[in-house]
Amino acid sequence: MSVATAPGTVSATSPAARNLLLLRIAAWTILGAPLAWGVYRWFWGDGFGFDPVEEMLHYSGLTAVWVLIASLAITPVRRWTGFNALQKIRRLTGLWAFAYATMHLSVYVTIDQWFDWVLIVEDLRERPFILSGSAALALMVPLAVTSTKGWIRRLGRRWVSLHRLVYLSAGLALLHFWWGQKADLRNAVIAAAVLAVLLGARVWWAVQKRRRAA
């Protein structure tokens, strides 16, 4: 951050900068906690139980879904609470969601399917459950790639349009989550309800904006 006191910027030692630093530290701590807990479980904890592959799949997948939902919660929460600094950790949250989804896929490809590409392709072709999850992650790839400052500058307005893909990705991720449940849909219902509120808020704002413009 620039130390020069151009209009609109703050000095590194100002309270605003200190608060932002604290916010970033808090965000990294919260977002990294599931990973740290997973590493702890593996080396010093329960080793992910009697069926470690299944449990690692569940754990990484559940974390990915909730971090993705958290990234979509930032804008609505900022608008409802006026806590504008939250916007500064939105990109970080999205990238962590992508990281957890990638870990989830990695568990599936490595110690679940053992790189058996024939089986993986069969899974993709025959099972909407697998296809929905894979598509959700695939849609996150361009978003992660274009999350740098350079890409934001280069794409301009188109960056915003491109990043609306996250809504589709979240919908597919939720479908994957839903289909992954055997009979107990409680967790999937909770996630779906939260996601519905977050996406519904955006629809509401868009309608309001159009009404005002008209």
Binding site: F50, D51, P52, D123, F129
Partner: peptide, 11 residues
Amino acid sequence: RWSQATHRVLP
């Protein structure tokens, strides 16, 4: 939703 061709002998 999944193949039954293989399984894991736990743990």
